[in-house]
Every structure is written in structure tokens, then in C-alpha cells.
């Protein structure tokens, strides 16, 4: 039982780390702001969620798990809100997505 839990949590931690790095690479490699935002959200949801899940499996049923759940809730509540505000601000500011530069019609905010 213990070994199963350990293996599961290790898998979760490894997966989370992997997704975080993928998000970071995307943050560097993506061509414009909106796609970069997409890459960053990989880090903020999948990576963070998996890592926290792995930690929770390690911690067992204690206060620590409750705090981790709280952190999880926090991330899932705030980071989409922040990203939403960011995207809206960028669009209102007049930063066009790259697609429109390629000849599409500019989308209305």
C-alpha cells in the first residue's frame, strides 16, 4: 500500500515537473503574447495540479493535505482570473493576435 502510494506520488511529481518545464519552454518559444499565455497556463494548471497531488499523496490525511487543497483551490481560482484580466487588458490595449497580422480580420474585443 505504501509503495503504491509512493510510486503514484512520484509519478505525479515527475509529470508535474515535466509539464512545468514544457510550459517554460513554450513561454520562450511561442511567437506572440497570446500563444505564450496558453503555454503558461499549462504550467499553472496541469503542472501545479500534478505536483500538488503528488505532495498530497505523500502527506496523507493531515492538516498539510488541507493546506495543499487550499493552495490548489487558490491556484485554480486565481490564475485563470489573472490570465483573463491580462488577456482582456492586452486586447483592449490593442495588442493584436498574430493571426490577424497574417491577414485575417481583426476580431472585436
Amino acid at each position: 500500500m505504501n509503495i503504491v502510494l509512493d510510486v503514484l506520488s512520484w509519478a505525479c511529481l515527475a509529470g508535474g515537473g515535466f509539464f512545468c518545464v514544457v510550459g517554460g519552454i513554450g513561454l520562450i518559444r511561442m511567437p506572440d503574447f497570446y500563444t505564450r499565455m496558453h503555454a503558461a497556463s499549462v504550467t499553472e494548471t496541469l503542472g501545479a495540479g500534478l505536483i500538488l497531488l503528488g505532495l498530497m499523496l505523500q502527506a496523507g490525511f493531515t492538516l498539510v493535505t488541507a493546506k495543499l487543497l487550499l493552495i490548489c483551490l487558490f491556484i485554480f481560482l486565481t490564475s485563470p482570473a489573472a490570465t483573463h484580466a491580462l488577456a482582456k487588458a492586452a486586447l483592449l490595449r490593442g495588442l493584436q493576435p498574430l493571426l490577424t497580422a497574417m491577414g485575417d480580420k481583426p476580431s472585436k474585443p
Binding site: L13, G16, C20, G23, G24, L27, F33, R36, M37, A40, T43, E44, G47, A48, I51, L52, L55, Q58, A59, L68, I71, I75, S79, A82, T83, L86, A89, A90, R93, L95
Partner: peptide
């Protein structure tokens, strides 16, 4: 642009948070 910087600042914050949790363990 400034938004890129902001986005990466946000990511850094999230990562630092996770890093703290991991470091505690």
C-alpha cells in the same frame, strides 16, 4: 511587451509557490 513580462512574472510566482511547497517536503 509589458504583458509578456507580466505573464512571466505570474508564472514565476506560481512556480515559486510550488517550489516552496516542494522545498518544505
Amino acid at each position: 511587451s509589458v504583458f509578456d513580462r507580466l505573464q512571466s512574472a505570474n508564472t514565476i510566482g506560481t512556480c515559486a509557490m510550488l517550489l516552496l511547497a516542494v522545498m518544505g517536503f
